[in-house]
Simulated scan of single mutants.
Amino acid sequence: MGKRRQTLNRIFTLLMIVFCLFLTIYGKALFEGNPMVMLQSIAKLELTSDSYVKISTSPVRYVSKFEKGTEPYIVINQYMQQQGWKYKDQLGSSLIFEKNNQQSTVSTVQYTKRFFIWTIPEQ
């Protein structure tokens, strides 16, 4: 009985460590919108070479990974340029773009240590 209890304690401890590591890395995904969508999007980023994954359509929001050694918001600049917008300025965590004398401000928020969310305003 003593060995069985000791084995169960070890399994429980291991599960708690794994759970804590999961919360440390992906924990915020459980609290931002639909957690399944966030976890699926993060998993897709981890398993593919995609630079961003759409997480909602209203408002239009994407999640991207911070890449070591690169400008963190370059993926937003590239996306907006494909839509015909030109980068104008950065104010804090917001990027300002211009097209046909109109401005669009893309807001960003650090989601976890490794991921950030960016929101494109509806035009």
Score class of each variant (00 low, 15 high):
S41W: 03
E46P: 02
S51L: 08
L14P: 01
S56I: 05
K44V: 08
T105D: 05
M16D: 03
W85Y: 13
E71M: 04
M16G: 11
I117K: 07
E46V: 00
F19A: 13
V37M: 06
C20A: 10
F12T: 15
F19M: 13
Q110E: 10
D50N: 14
S94F: 01
G33E: 09
L47K: 14
F115G: 12
G33V: 04
Y52P: 03
W118Q: 12
S93V: 06
R61A: 10
S107M: 04
E46N: 15
R114E: 15
Q6M: 08
G27T: 03
R5Q: 11
I76P: 08
R61H: 01
I76C: 06
K68P: 00
M1W: 09
N100T: 08
E46D: 14
E71N: 09
S41I: 07
F31C: 03
N101C: 00
K3M: 08
F31E: 13
K44S: 15
Q103F: 08
V75A: 05
G2D: 15
T108W: 07
W118R: 08
A43P: 03
S58R: 08
V109E: 15
M80I: 04
L47H: 11
G69I: 08
L15G: 04
N101T: 05
T7W: 07
T13P: 02
I17H: 03
K68H: 06
E122A: 09
S56G: 13
